[in-house]
Design a binder for these strands. Structure first.
Lengths: 296, 296
DNA sequence: CTAGGTTACGGCTAACGTAAGGATG
DNA sequence: CATCCTTACGTTAGCCGTAACCTAG
């Protein structure tokens, strides 16, 4: 099993499952039927598993095919979220509905919302600016964007807000780190006195951490890095414990590449809030997006 | 924005972000540096967004690049789960650790577990059989597989078991269906008297539904279909309300393509259980998998 | 005969590697 | 001048569409 599969072939497989024949799936993909046949055959070779039961009256998925189609649908859903989010970033300036979001919200929440919004309001083009929390507030107040999404702890002045979710910072270490097998919760004072891998000053993650550490005796950071993935990489390499958003490390923790250390006596929760100009009524698409965001 | 991006290019982008230069990312991918340069450039053209800040001392991700890399990492994680799961299906027979799982568990839970198991026990090859719940029990009792995973409601005789998660059946309709705007919860009797789109008899989903309907006056099914995706397709087309696992419709509900109808007075929850031969001790890899599965 | 499938073949796109050219500390 | 990136170029591999053939109801 070398290379990763290509998404077009996975889409083709899913379509065959739903439409019942290679020919119809080919039409849906805008290619000729023999091309679709060959692509699926190649996918079967590459995965080493038979996927279709072919008959002169159509094709149905084998048991393995149903499984693969199910897993493929999840890959495709993630890919489509990516494409929608990229489209929103590209249209940042000239869109019908302009919003700004901080990194964490933009990365983990916004793509989902866009999917549902697009379904409810198919014609609305969303433009997305990704900036830090302070800039989100500035753009909303300045009227550059209609709606903003920020991560706590503080909600800026002069803005109406609604909580749309909660996040918390977590301490993670490489699986080989002594703390990975800890059974007793880590105390805040102990964490503060340990050199850590953290995000750069000014990021929402760092600010939440600084606030929680205030008043504690503390060690300087071991490493300051400018992106979540860089911090994760350093933690996995065993450099030191890292502090990051629970969203950001979800996948690594699920896969066992990082281990979350239980923590006590330190509040690292933070609200994720939608904000808009106080007293100004929202346009219809903005109200829809807000309602979508609030429901999840 | 036509076609979907290809996964190799996304991997390349993520690697550039983590490794700091196109050259190192190229080496990681096993291709020449100019090829990597061209691929990323093509990705930028295709997405219509600048992704890299190129300098003579390396390349760093732009703000948009960091976003895209974050979203790409999620797509890649899903793709890798798919590949691991396919490998397990392919090795069904001749693996070190052989397990059997029913559809729902195999589709939504097993890929995650495999990721973590592979991390904890890198050398273990897992073989996965996907069969219905009754067959899972038979294979465990017959010694064909060491561990099984079934969806309730009944736990087979003669097997030790442990609950590894919970699922529930949900009622979903197309967004245009009258029930989509319902505010009051649906009563069990009303649901039973409505023609539905359901899975075929013998599937775990169908059995749970039949059990819940027992004693109620009921209408026949509107459609019986052999796969979750077929049922979802019919529901989206507006054929009738459908009843499916919450896991199965998660993505569609999040994207607004299906709407969940609130339900009262009918217990459609079901436990997902690991099962093994009573009195037989588990091998080390099986025990590890069980512990991984139990923790999530 | 129709509706579905595969095989065969020629054309073209696209990805690769090597080699050469340009910028920046 | 060392490093990293890009452009140029020739080769190769893979995908596509058309056409021909096969099979079952």
């Amino acid at each position: 099993m070398r290379g990763l599969p290509d998404l077009e072939s996975l889409r083709l497989l899913v379509d065959v499952g739903e439409l019942g024949s290679l020919g119809r799936a080919a039409k849906a993909a805008g290619i000729a039927q023999p091309s679709a046949s060959k692509r699926v055959a190649q996918l079967e070779r590459r995965l080493g598993v038979p996927l279709l039961e072919r008959t002169p009256r159509g094709s149905t998925l084998t048991t393995e095919g149903k499984m693969v189609a199910g897993w493929a649908a999840q890959v495709l859903a993630a890919a489509e979220e990516l494409m929608r989010a990229v489209a929103a970033v590209r249209h940042a300036g000239r869109a019908h509905l302009r919003v700004a979001a901080s990194m964490t919200v933009a990365e983990y929440l916004v793509p989902r919302w866009l999917g549902e919004l697009q379904h409810r309001e198919p014609d609305v083009q969303v433009g997305l600016d990704v900036v830090n929390s302070a800039d989100v507030a500035a753009r909303v107040l300045g009227g550059d964007v209609e709606l903003g999404f920020v991560e706590g702890p503080s909600v800026p002045e002069g803005l109406a807000s609604r909580v749309v979710g909660t996040d918390r910072l977590v301490v993670v270490v490489a699986p080989g780190h002594p703390w990975a097998r800890r059974r007793t919760a880590l105390r805040g004072a102990e964490l503060a006195a340990t050199p850590l891998v953290v995000r750069e000053p000014g990021s929402g993650t760092r600010e939440t951490l600084e606030l929680a550490f205030s008043g504690l005796h503390r060690a300087g950071p071991r490493l300051e890095l400018g992106s979540n993935s860089a911090v994760k990489g350093a933690a996995q390499a065993g450099a030191a414990p890292a502090v990051l958003s629970a969203y950001a490390v979800e996948a690594e923790v699920a896969a066992g590449r990082l281990v979350e250390v239980p923590l006590a006596g330190l509040d690292l929760g933070r609200r994720l809030c939608a904000v808009w100009r106080r007293g100004r009524s929202l346009t219809a698409p903005a109200a829809t997006l807000l309602s979508v965001a609030t429901q999840r």
